[in-house]
């Protein structure tokens, strides 16, 4: 626009940095590659490569004499996953606990999230949001040991249940399931709360206006609309339970889940190939689970 080219020329000096910027400005693809190079490299090398190495180990074996991992390709570990009754019973037990924890967490999270989103005023909503988030700030171990104290024979739970003629489940699978349910509850509440926030209040009014009572509105309008969020929450609770190996050790008594079975194989048993083979189980289960929920659109909500 300027009529004096010499002034414009003086204002824009062509420096190397400017040349690079201008090249990138005109080449969107190069820009994207440059931007993603570092994180992709990190992900590929440190994360995926390490994981693949571990999984490859599943097809190796252990030298019985020295105890060292030996590159001797075989399917023995994989075969024993299917033939050894210990592995199948631990797998079924872990899936059972994971499903139970997931369902109970969803049942607890739904009313809490609904109250936060649609009933509570802004002040109470903030207090509730903080209460849900606060336990996430505490260390996982601290919470597990807190539950160890709660569940103990002289713990708070026993004291509460005794007048009702009941006993604490103590350090058992029940104890582990309760603790895990507590651990993952915030991860289930938050996506469901987020999903409910996206349901406009007038949807509920419209449903009621058309003659639906509260339960029908929940079943026909709210539930289908937040189903992807529920599934998103369930992925957290389910996968975290599948992979857990600490809670079961702290409050699970002598019981085993997949997580601590793998852990034992890495440590005490010194059988890394078996541990790697066992690690395939939760990975396979999660792939099957994610594959089946992908169609619901839940993965867009993570």
């Amino acid at each position: 626009m300027t009529k004096n080219p010499s002034v414009a020329g003086a204002a824009i000096a062509v420096t190397p940095a400017r040349r690079v910027s201008s090249y990138l400005y005109n080449h969107a693809k190069a820009r994207l590659q440059l931007l993603l190079a570092a994180p992709v490299l990190w992900l590929a090398l440190v994360y995926i490569a390490a994981l693949l190495m571990l999984l490859v180990t599943a097809f190796w074996t252990v030298d019985e004499f020295t105890g060292n991992t030996k590159v001797a390709w075989n399917l023995d570990n994989i075969v024993s996953l299917f033939t050894d009754s210990l592995y199948s019973s631990v797998t079924l037990r872990t899936i059972g606990i994971a499903l139970g924890v997931t369902l109970v967490d969803i049942a607890l999270a739904l009313p809490i999230a609904f109250f936060m989103s649609k009933v509570a005023g802004p002040k109470l909503r903030n207090i509730l949001a903080i209460s849900v988030l606060l336990p996430l700030w505490a260390s996982y171990l601290v919470k597990a040991y807190a539950w160890r104290s709660v569940l103990s024979n002289k713990g708070v739970l026993q004291w509460l249940l005794e007048p009702l003629g009941l006993n604490t489940p103590g350090y058992s699978l029940w104890g582990a399931a309760i603790t895990l349910g507590y651990m993952w509850l915030p991860y289930v509440i938050l996506p469901i709360y987020g999903g409910l926030e996206k349901v406009p209040g007038n949807m509920l009014e419209a449903s009621s206006d058309l003659g639906a009572k509260t339960f029908t509105t929940v079943r026909r309008v709210i539930f289908p609309m937040i189903l992807p969020s529920i599934i998103a929450g369930s992925i957290f609770a389910f996968s975290l339970t599948l992979g857990d190996y600490i809670t079961i050790n702290i409050v699970g008594g002598p019981n085993q889940m997949l997580g601590n079975l793998i852990y034992t194989n890495v440590g005490t048993a010194n059988n890394l190939p078996m541990a790697a083979a066992l690690a395939l189980i939760p990975i396979a289960i999660m792939f099957a689970y994610l594959g089946s929920v992908r169609r619901t659109g839940a993965l867009n909500n993570l």
Binding site: E205, A206, S207, S208, D209, K213, P224, M225
Partner: peptide, 20 residues
């Protein structure tokens, strides 16, 4: 009375159609 017990129906400003 609750909305579902009234013989009136509403057309909402932003329609409030059920998206699913």
């Amino acid at each position: 009375k609750a909305p579902f017990d009234r013989d009136v129906n509403t057309v909402f400003q932003d329609y409030a159609l059920f998206p699913h």
